[in-house]
Design a protein around this nucleic acid. Structure first.
Length: 587
RNA sequence: GCGCCUGUAGCUCAGUUGGAUAGAGUAUCGGUUUCCGAAACCGAGGGUCACAGGUUCAAUUCCUGUCAGGCGCACCA
């Protein structure tokens, strides 16, 4: 609808230019057409006359008059008016307004989709939490946001590849393996103080239990031997990092490479399986789980480092290899290989991103927690240094959700084991409410997540409001059957002109706005626009429901109304579907 | 100290990338059911859009500065 109107304006402008009534150079100016906020201003408004005022040195209202006079009569347009400082307001014809109903019903589940991004491959990486423990509610926001952004991009025609980057290499995983081993030793009867920097969560005990069941005493070493020569822990006046690293080295030495790997993999797989399962149940689907270790072990990380060296992007200092990221606007240069010869996390991230570029995506979207924002310049710098087109890489930051329990702020730390897991949240609030709640706010908005509110099955939760609208419409049709009445779509479509109530007009407008909302939400990566649209649509429906009846004696009006609400139900279902939220028949 | 994000109704947040009289939910107060689901609807009050400048036909929106909050500034991930 909007596109059709735009074309009409464009061609009118073109003809005015060819008649030399408007100067040539304005042809590059893009016509902007917006939905009006106020029904009194018609359906669409264009500010084109005001934009043209300056370059043409003419009065905006005068230009508007020129355009309006040149506008050919069109069946879609009922009325064109000049208003305010020079807005051109378009009011659609009744036929134009009604045609959306047939369109919705014809396209059904496809209504709202388009091929804006057709032929473009886009990769979306999200969550990518370290597999050192279960996902917590902080990850939930990234999961909900990432999966809805992916769905939206798919809806507007992109070829979307959803990916989870598994950090299954590196020091944190060693610490997890060490933690599991120590809990195992405890279960074998050894006594010692658990390291302050180890993972203390309940799940570590579970994995240790499995380890004991599978391997018996095979990994048992006396505590005295294990702790021999290990630097003291922080509470004893030492350094917690050196302490835990020392224990990891002991594990590797005492167990040997083979057994250590088995221990390591047991922890990794247990947690990764849990994360996979958790995300699947949360409705966050992935096309690929990309292993960091595979990059390391296949030599891709070393290759990337060599490429940087070859490009003269590295230099050696204090025994470490540094990347000249300051040359690309970063605050300081970054270490790629430590003085102990180990590659940093950054090194494998460079390799991973290089790999993404090499896979030929037109767009690469990274969705990160806001705490990683300092990372953006160095990753972009590395890609620039490796001659990649950095404009393809877009990093979207998801701000933190600050947890509250009523008025009480809830602290979170994976290490200490004190956190609310995503699974707990899902168990108590349900997938639908959790997803809707997360996506309700813009990603760059700091969000207050009140667990009490989300857990309470109260009506404060907006998802019920939208779902209820859907269920209510389903209920109307159940009533219809009960009363042994029928609905004939064709009769309804033929009588749409009888939908003259203001509430009905408002619903027609909402239905036709839906594709515009989906497209905008997709392109700007702002799924909350869709959530808000659905709440608005649900509100318009509830208002309509309370004001008018659908099963009435006037058959033609009745059929038209039933047809209208069928279209409303379809759009709600489509929108909720994109959000990964169910559209229940009853609730 | 530097960088990123944020500041809009008592509270939680929208505001169509610069448009017309700044909107919802919630809370408060008042109303609605012999009628398809009251998890709903209708109405009322509630604002110096943090503050000060600037850009222009037009600024909550863009720029600069100040103030306040969150996050980040490792040879950690």
């Amino acid at each position: 609808m909007k596109d059709q109107l735009k074309k009409i304006i464009d061609s009118t402008l073109a003809s005015l230019i060819s008649q030399q009534r408007l100067p040539e150079e304005i042809s590059s100016i893009e016509v902007k057409l917006e939905r009006t906020k106020d029904r009194g201003h018609g359906d669409f408004a264009s500010n084109i006359a005001m934009v043209l005022a300056k370059p043409t040195k003419m009065n905006p209202r005068q230009i508007a008059g020129l355009i309006v006079d040149a506008l050919p009569p069109h069946e879609l347009i009922d009325k064109v008016e000049i208003a305010g400082p020079g807005f051109i307001n378009f009011t659609l014809s009744a036929t134009a307004r009604q045609q959306v109903v047939a369109e919705v019903l014809k396209n059904a589940g496809q209504y709202g989709l388009n091929d804006y991004g057709k032929g473009h491959k886009v990769q979306v990486e999200f969550v990518s939490a370290n597999p050192t423990g279960p996902l917590h509610v902080g990850h939930g926001r990234g999961a909900a946001y990432g999966s809805v952004v992916s769905s939206l991009l798919k809806a507007v025609g992109y070829d979307v590849h959803r990916e989870y980057y598994v950090n299954d290499a590196g020091r944190q995983m060693d610490i997890l393996a060490t933690s599991v081993w120590l809990r195992y030793l405890e279960k074998c009867g050894e006594q010692f103080t658990f390291p302050s920097n180890g993972y203390r969560g309940e799940y570590v005990f579970d994995i240790a239990e499995t380890l004991k069941n599978q391997h018996g005493d095979a990994l048992l070493h006396p505590a005295a031997v294990v702790f021999e020569g290990v630097p003291t822990d922080e509470p004893q006046g030492g350094d917690k990092e050196l302490h835990i690293d020392g224990l990891t080295n002991q594990a590797k030495k005492l167990l040997g490479a083979e057994l250590y790997r088995q221990l390591f993999d047991l922890g990794l797989n247990a947690i990764l399986d849990d994360i996979r399962n958790d995300l699947a149940e949360f409705g966050a689907e992935y096309d690929e789980w990309f292993s960091e270790r595979s990059l390391v072990e296949s030599g891709v990380v070393d290759e990337a480092i060599e490429q940087l060296k070859a490009a003269n992007m590295l230099y050696q200092q204090d025994g470490a290899w540094w990347f000249k990221s300051t040359e690309f606007g970063d605050e300081k240069d970054r270490v790629v290989v430590r003085d102990n010869g180990q590659a940093t996390y950054f090194a494998s991230d460079v390799a991973y991103h290089l790999n993404k570029f090499q896979r030929g995506f037109d767009q690469i979207i990274d969705i990160w927690g806001a705490d990683h924002h300092g990372y953006i310049p160095r990753v972009k710098a590395a890609m620039a240094g490796l001659q990649q087109d950095v404009s393809k890489l877009k990093v979207l930051l998801v701000q933190f959700a600050v947890l509250y329990r009523g008025k009480e702020k809830v602290g979170m730390s994976t290490r200490s084991g004190e956190f609310v897991t995503l699974r707990e949240l899902r168990d108590e609030v349900g997938k639908d409410a959790a997803r809707f709640f997360y996506v309700l706010r813009g990603a760059d908005q700091h969000m207050d997540f009140d667990l009490e509110l989300a857990k309470s099955q109260s009506n404060d939760n907006p998802v019920y409001y939208v779902q209820y609208a859907h269920a209510r419409i389903c209920s109307v049709f159940r009533q219809l059957a009960e009363r042994q009445l029928s609905w004939d779509q064709q009769v309804g479509l033929q009588n749409l002109s009888l939908l003259s109530e203001e509430h009905e007009q408002a619903l027609l407008t909402m239905l036709s706005r839906y594709p515009e909302v989906v497209e905008l939400a997709a392109i700007t990566h702002t799924p909350h626009l869709l959530a808000h649209f659905l709440m608005d649509l649900a509100r318009d429906f509830h208002t309509y429901y309370n004001a008018h009846q659908f099963m009435i004696d006037d058959i033609n009006v009745s059929q038209a109304r039933l047809t209208l609400i069928t279209a409303v139900r379809q759009v709600i279902a489509n929108g909720l579907g994109l959000m990964g939220v169910s559209a229940p028949q009853s609730m």
